[in-house]
């Protein structure tokens, strides 16, 4: 009787108490939530809702069917391929650089310079980055001309700088430093005692990497690779500045839809693409967080 009665009592009482207190103490966060509602939640809602509005105005999943069309599926495949390759290569190169840094003096000049520079370069992207590579490897670029004068033509099979392989190479420019930043703490968590313990227990370098350092670092490495994937999957400006024609990757398809006539005739399609991107990045980021959490105990 009482057991059944008391919850009802408390729920009945709460609105009165809470109703008085809630506005008072939550008034401080109202501006923030209003701002977020208008400029973050509303756009997200527009994407969500708009993606369900078919060109004829009806509510349907027609827009998502468009993703399956060959040219669009190809863009998704390209986006995923370029992100995967630049993430994996960037992760390995960044991990090597991070390892080279971490084996130096803990507070040395080298370490400070590399981490500072990584923080800067990881932010570097867009138009400027595209120009930098055009000035380096473009057909009038410094390095291209330098190599050509020595009889090496890097474009014997066509000018790849402006297609997917070029874009992948350019993405490495921000992927590697990002990897350094996110992977360095994991490497720092590796204690020299573990290597020495391995040795005193009869293990060599191979055993150390195979049974100790490898398993310890792998989840973190994988998580960082996922983060890099999300990073290049979301990238748009570099590709936009480099590739002026065609929707090679999904962001460029979105751009085309936003700026062209065909796009304005089917506004829901761009939203469906945006939603697909958000879902992919969201899944990847959740996996990243889970992997990071897994190693949190180990690498403190």
């Amino acid at each position: 009787m009482t057991a059944a009665g008391s919850p009802a009592l408390s729920t009945a009482a709460r609105p009165v108490r809470g109703g008085r207190r809630l506005p008072l103490s939550s008034i401080g966060v109202v501006p923030f939530f209003v701002y977020i509602a208008v400029f973050l939640l509303l756009p997200t809602a527009i994407i969500l809702g708009g993606s369900l509005v078919a060109p004829d105005g009806s509510i349907s999943f027609a827009n998502f069917a468009g993703i399956a069309k060959p040219y669009m599926a190809k863009s998704f495949a390209n986006s995923i391929a370029i992100s995967a390759v630049s993430a994996v290569v960037g992760a390995f190169a960044g991990a090597l650089l991070a390892y080279a840094v971490v084996t130096g003096k803990p507070n040395g000049v080298l370490r400070r310079s590399v981490t500072s520079a990584s923080g800067v370069v990881a932010q570097f992207g867009g138009v400027t980055l595209a120009f930098a590579f055009v000035a380096t490897l473009g057909t009038t670029g410094f390095v291209y001309e330098f190599l050509l004068q020595r009889g090496i033509d890097i474009y014997t099979n066509g000018i790849w700088l402006y297609d997917l392989s070029g874009l992948t190479l350019i993405y490495l420019y921000f992927q590697i430093p990002l990897m350094v930043l996110v992977f360095l703490p994991a490497l720092d968590g590796i204690r020299p005692q573990w290597r020495e313990a391995t040795e005193s227990l009869g293990g060599g370098t191979w055993h150390y990497w195979r049974y100790v350092a490898g398993p310890l670092l792998f989840p973190s490495f994988l998580g960082c690779t996922l983060l890099l994937f999300a990073n290049s999957f979301s990238a748009y400006a570099t590709a936009a500045a480099l590739i002026t024609q065609g929707g090679v990757i999904v962001p460029l398809q979105i751009q085309a839809l936003l700026t062209s006539e065909t796009g304005s005739s089917q506004p829901g399609f761009a939203k469906a693409l945006a939603l697909a991107m958000i879902v992919i990045v969201l899944v990847v980021m959740v996996l990243y967080t889970l992997l990071q959490r897994r190693t949190a105990h180990w690498l403190r």
């Binding site: 997200t44 748009y236 990045v281």
Partner: peptide, 12 residues
């Protein structure tokens, strides 16, 4: 972070 800028701009 989980909403790529290129996607967010569609909603904006």
């Amino acid at each position: 972070l989980t909403v790529p800028a290129i996607a967010l701009v569609v909603g904006m």
